[in-house]
Simulated assay, not measured.
Amino acid sequence: MLTLVKNAQLFTPEPRGLCHLLIADQRIAAVLDATEQVNVGALINTLDLEGRRVIPGLVDPLVHYIGGGGEGGFGNRTAELSIEDACASGVTTLIGALGTDALTRTPANLIGKARELAAGGLTTYAYTGSYQLPPVTLTGSVASDILYIPEFIGVGEVAISDHRGSQPNTHELTRLASEARTAGLLAGKSGIVFIHTGDADSHLEPLRQVAKHSAIPLAQFYPTHINRTSALLEDGLRFAREGGRIDFTTSSTPELLAKGEVPASEAVARALRARIAPSQLSLSSDANASLPEFDEQHRFIGLKPGKLSSLFEVLGECINEHHISMEQALRCAATTAADALKLPHKGRLHAGADADFIVLTEGRWAIEQVWALGKPVYGMSTL
């Protein structure tokens, strides 16, 4: 069956005006100007959106599918991501990670959950490894995980400048990046090293040392939490000027903001004012991770869970509060991550791309429908 989605005010992320989307199976077969005549046959389902805005499905490069945390003991473990919450969030491509806990949570758990979410209609990938080195893996090595397990596209989130990490030295980070990069080349994947950045004064310097003393480029690393502090944000802007990509975390708490975290939408606005290209900026939710609070002696105080829905919320803040164009904001919430992770069929709406998109509610910033791989997963059950 073919599906014709008519009269969409389309952002691809570029503004295209009023268009029709022709969907064949899981992909966009054609994007047609709304003035073009379309002969609708008996084998084509049709849906008229009557001018509603349509944007690409969001790409989230950091989601804790199976929960995270536990820094305060077993009573502080966060819950798994539910398929209902995932489908309602507007995120249609998710990349899972372990994080701090690679003891009671495992790569096998992570892949199992990724496949559960994929069975619900979403596109899911994952990072092998966790905060610590040597990395925990499914097959015995980072290289073989990336090469042989379809969902594994890189390694992460590896912690630097954080008291919970294994304090890796330049040699260890270089070897890890080299292994992931080579495996990615062999497998046709990104082989990215996704980096958790803590609040220590070293910031992103460990990554610069790798690039300085080896042939590994800065772009092999993909550091997140760059809006954790103003000082880290400034170092992140420098990192971007040097050729790297940086990622801002959309989940936050009043406590973290009070201690100096920069709201993600403000971080995007500051980066754009600093003339950092949207192709070097992305947003991630850190969904279902713990957002822990520590005192000055790094003693645990408490935590709250990250939320997948925060990515769409921050996208709206970028557009409605900071007056960032829809195109630039969408690049940060979808296209940049897709490019960094070598997923050219994601984060954009054109012929040949996966039919992942969000239909926005008329007149306000809210989700009316979510489509993933050519089928509605939220907001409507049938055409």
Rank of each mutant, 00 (worst) to 15 (best):
2 L>V: 10
5 V>W: 00
6 K>Q: 15
7 N>V: 07
7 N>I: 07
13 P>H: 05
13 P>Y: 02
14 E>R: 13
14 E>W: 04
17 G>R: 08
21 L>Q: 08
23 I>F: 06
25 D>S: 14
25 D>A: 14
35 T>A: 11
37 Q>L: 12
54 V>H: 01
57 G>K: 04
57 G>S: 09
59 V>W: 06
60 D>Q: 12
63 V>P: 00
63 V>F: 00
66 I>W: 00
68 G>T: 10
70 G>F: 01
74 F>S: 15
78 T>D: 00
82 S>Y: 07
85 D>R: 15
88 A>K: 14
91 V>R: 00
95 I>A: 03
97 A>F: 00
97 A>S: 13
100 T>A: 10
102 A>D: 14
103 L>Y: 15
105 R>N: 04
114 A>S: 15
114 A>I: 01
116 E>Y: 01
119 A>H: 11
126 A>K: 01
127 Y>I: 03
128 T>A: 06
130 S>P: 01
135 P>A: 15
137 T>K: 04
138 L>F: 14
144 S>V: 02
150 P>D: 14
152 F>H: 02
155 V>N: 03
155 V>E: 02
155 V>L: 09
156 G>A: 08
156 G>E: 01
164 R>Q: 13
164 R>V: 07
165 G>L: 03
165 G>I: 01
181 R>T: 08
192 I>C: 06
196 H>D: 06
198 G>I: 05
209 Q>K: 13
209 Q>W: 07
210 V>I: 13
214 S>N: 07
221 F>E: 00
221 F>T: 03
222 Y>H: 09
222 Y>V: 01
228 R>K: 13
234 E>P: 00
234 E>G: 04
236 G>S: 09
244 G>Q: 02
244 G>C: 06
245 R>K: 12
259 K>D: 15
261 E>V: 11
262 V>Y: 03
267 A>C: 13
269 A>H: 13
270 R>G: 01
272 L>G: 08
274 A>H: 12
276 I>P: 12
283 L>F: 15
286 D>V: 12
290 S>V: 08
303 L>F: 11
304 K>A: 14
305 P>I: 11
307 K>A: 13
310 S>D: 14
312 F>N: 02
315 L>I: 09
315 L>A: 12
319 I>V: 15
322 H>T: 03
325 S>K: 05
328 Q>D: 15
329 A>D: 02
332 C>I: 11
338 A>H: 04
338 A>W: 01
338 A>Y: 04
339 D>E: 15
343 L>K: 04
344 P>L: 11
345 H>P: 00
346 K>F: 01
347 G>A: 14
348 R>I: 07
351 A>L: 11
352 G>A: 11
355 A>N: 08
357 F>I: 10
365 W>N: 10
367 I>G: 02
369 Q>G: 00
369 Q>W: 09
371 W>E: 00
372 A>R: 02
375 K>N: 13
379 G>N: 06
